[in-house]
Nucleic acid binder design. Structure first.
Lengths: 215, 215
DNA sequence: TAAAAAATGAGGGTTAACCCTCATTAAATT
DNA sequence: AATTTAATGAGGGTTAACCCTCATTTTTTA
C-alpha cells in the first residue's frame, strides 16, 4: 500500500477522461495510474495494474461499465469501484450496487463530490450521490412494504418483444422474428402495456428508449 | 489583446467543466477566465468578460448552447465560439455553423483536438471535427446537386405534431391539443411518415427521440 | 410436490390508425 | 401577379392494433 490512492479511469470520451485525470491529479493523495476507453480494455488493464480505486463510466462501447465491473468482480471480489454516469437512472444505480460497486456518482456532480467519493470508496465505505440515495430508500421501502408489486417487472420474453416493438416492427414481423404466432405476440404486448402502465405501442416504444432496453 | 487566449467555458456538468478547465490550463497560451453552467448565464457572462474564445456545450439547461450563441451573436457578431457536443448530429452541426460558430467538436475527441480547435478559432479560422466534416461535404453536395429534396424537411406544424405523437398521444388527443380536427392531424402524420420514410407512428416516435425533436 | 409464473395460442369484438383522393384558404416564393 | 407551399378539412376504405376471456404446456418457486 502506498501513501496515495492509485486510481484507474475507464471512460470512453477521451476529452472527459483527460479532464478527470487533470482534476484528480490536483489532489495530492490521488494519483491516476491508468486509463482506458472501453469496458473490455478496462477488465484487462485492471488485472494488470490492480488500482486501489476504479473510476468507471457506465456508458462505454464494447462492454459497458456494469458488464465490465461484473467481470472484474470475478477476478477480484474486493474491487473498489466508483461508477460514473450521466443517467439519473434507478435501474443503473441498483444494478451497480448489486454488482458491488461502492460508489455511484453523476457526471453533473461537483468535482469535490467525486474526490470525496474516491476517498470514501478507498476506505471501503460507500458513497452514493445524495440525489440518488433517495431512489435507494424508495426501492428499499418498496421491497419491505408488503405492497410488493413484481407485476411491473417484464419477463425476458416480454423484454425481447418490447425491443423489437421499439424498432418499429409490426406484430406480424415480431412473430416471424421470434418464431411464434402473432396471437402470442399480441398477448405479450398486452402484458407489457399493463406492466408499463401505457396505453399503446408508441408509448411503450418511448418508454423502451428512454429507459435502458433498446440501444 | 493579451499574450494568452482568454477562454470562457459554458458546460452544465460541473465535473466535466472543471475537468476541461484543468485540461486547458495545462497549455500556457490558454487561460480559462470564466465558466458557467447554463445558456442564460452564458449570455450574461459573455457580455461581462468578453472572452477571446467561447467554449460552449450544446446541451444545457434553461437555454441550450445554440440558443445562447444566437443571443450572444446579437450582442457581439464577432464572437468566436467552439461548440462542444456528444451528438454526432448533422442538424446540430449545420445549425451551429449557420449561427456562425467557428468550431465544432465532439466530446469524444482527443484533448489535443480541442486545444487545436481553440487555437484555430482564436485566429478566426474554423475547426470542424474531422469525422463531422464529412457531413458538411454531404450537405454541400446535397444542396448543389439539382437533386435537391426539401421534401424531407418537416414543416413547423409537422414537427409539432411529431413531438406530441412521440409522447404517445392519440390522434384525437393531438387534435385537441392543437385545436385542429383529427382529420388534419391524420394528414400531417401521413406527410410525416412520407418525409421520414417510416411506416407507422411507432417508427416515427423512435425517429423523433433518436434524432433531436423530443426531449 | 403442489402452486405460481412464464410462454404459447385462440376466439371474437371494437376502433384507432393508415391509405388514397380531393378541396379551401392563407402565406411564402418567384 | 402568378405559383408553390403550408395548414386546414373531408369522404371512404382496409387493417393492424388493442380489448376481453380462456386454455395448454413447461419452468420456476415455495
Amino acid at each position: 500500500m502506498t501513501d496515495y490512492i492509485r486510481v484507474m479511469i475507464a471512460e470512453d470520451h477521451s476529452m472527459i477522461r483527460d479532464g478527470l485525470k487533470q482534476l484528480l491529479e490536483l489532489e495530492n493523495d490521488i494519483k491516476v495510474i491508468a486509463a482506458c476507453s472501453d469496458g473490455k480494455t478496462a477488465v484487462e488493464k485492471y488485472k494488470e495494474v490492480k488500482p486501489d480505486v476504479l473510476l468507471m463510466d457506465i456508458n462505454m462501447p464494447v462492454l459497458n461499465g456494469l458488464e465490465a465491473l461484473e467481470q472484474i468482480k470475478a477476478f477480484d471480489s474486493g474491487v473498489k469501484a466508483v461508477m460514473l454516469t450521466i443517467h439519473q437512472d434507478r435501474e443503473y444505480l441498483l444494478k451497480a450496487l448489486e454488482l458491488g460497486a461502492l460508489g455511484y456518482i453523476l457526471k453533473d456532480a461537483e468535482a469535490s463530490a467525486l474526490i470525496e467519493a474516491i476517498r470514501s470508496v478507498n476506505k471501503n465505505q460507500t458513497y452514493i450521490q445524495p440525489t440518488m440515495a433517495r431512489e435507494l430508500v424508495n426501492e428499499y421501502k418498496r421491497i419491505k412494504s408488503g405492497a410488493d408489486e413484481p407485476k411491473n417487472r417484464l419477463t425476458e420474453r416480454e423484454t425481447e418483444v418490447l425491443r423489437l416493438l421499439a424498432k418499429g416492427m409490426l406484430n406480424k414481423e415480431i412473430a416471424n422474428a421470434l418464431y411464434i404466432s402473432e396471437k402470442t405476440v399480441k398477448n405479450h404486448i398486452s402484458s407489457i402495456f399493463r406492466k408499463l402502465n401505457v396505453q399503446d405501442r408508441t408509448q411503450a416504444a418511448v418508454y423502451a428508449i428512454k429507459n435502458k432496453i433498446v440501444e
